[in-house]
C-alpha cells in the first residue's frame, strides 16, 4: 500500500513567548521539513503555538517505566535538597 511507514516524529509546541516547548503528539513524515508542515496543520490550526520542534521518535532515549522506582530512588532519601528541611531561627529575615 503506502510503501512502508514513513518516519515517526514527536511534536513539541511553544504556546506563547515565555513558555517552554511542550510535547503535543506525534505524526508520520518522510523528512523534517514535511514534518514541520504537517505539525503546523495537525497541531496548530487554532493558533496554539508560536514555535514548533519536530524530533525523530527514534532519536529519543527514554528511561524505562519498569525501572522507574530504582532509577529515581537516589532522590528519595535526600530531603535536605528541599528548603523546607531546614529550621530557620526565629528573627532571621529574607531567608
Amino acid at each position: 500500500m503506502s510503501g512502508g511507514d514513513s518516519q515517526l516524529w514527536e511534536v513539541f509546541v511553544r504556546p506563547r513567548r515565555g513558555l517552554s516547548h511542550v510535547h503535543v503528539g506525534s505524526l508520520h513524515a518522510p523528512d523534517a521539513q514535511v514534518a514541520l508542515h504537517h505539525a503546523r496543520d495537525v497541531y496548530t490550526r487554532r493558533q496554539e503555538g508560536v514555535s514548533i520542534w519536530v524530533v525523530p521518535a527514534a532519536a529519543i532515549s527514554a528511561s524505562s517505566p519498569d525501572e522507574k522506582d530504582a532509577f529515581f530512588d537516589p532522590a528519595a532519601d535526600k530531603v535536605y535538597r528541599h528548603p523546607t528541611f531546614y529550621h530557620v531561627p526565629e528573627g532571621a529575615g529574607h531567608l
Binding site: M1, S2, G3, G4, S6, A29, P30, D31, V34
Partner: peptide, 16 residues
C-alpha cells in the same frame, strides 16, 4: 484517494 496519493508519498520518501 489512497491509491491516487501513493505517488506523492513515494516522491516525498524519495526526496527525503
Amino acid at each position: 484517494a489512497h491509491a491516487e496519493g501513493a505517488w506523492v508519498r513515494e516522491a516525498a520518501e524519495a526526496h527525503a
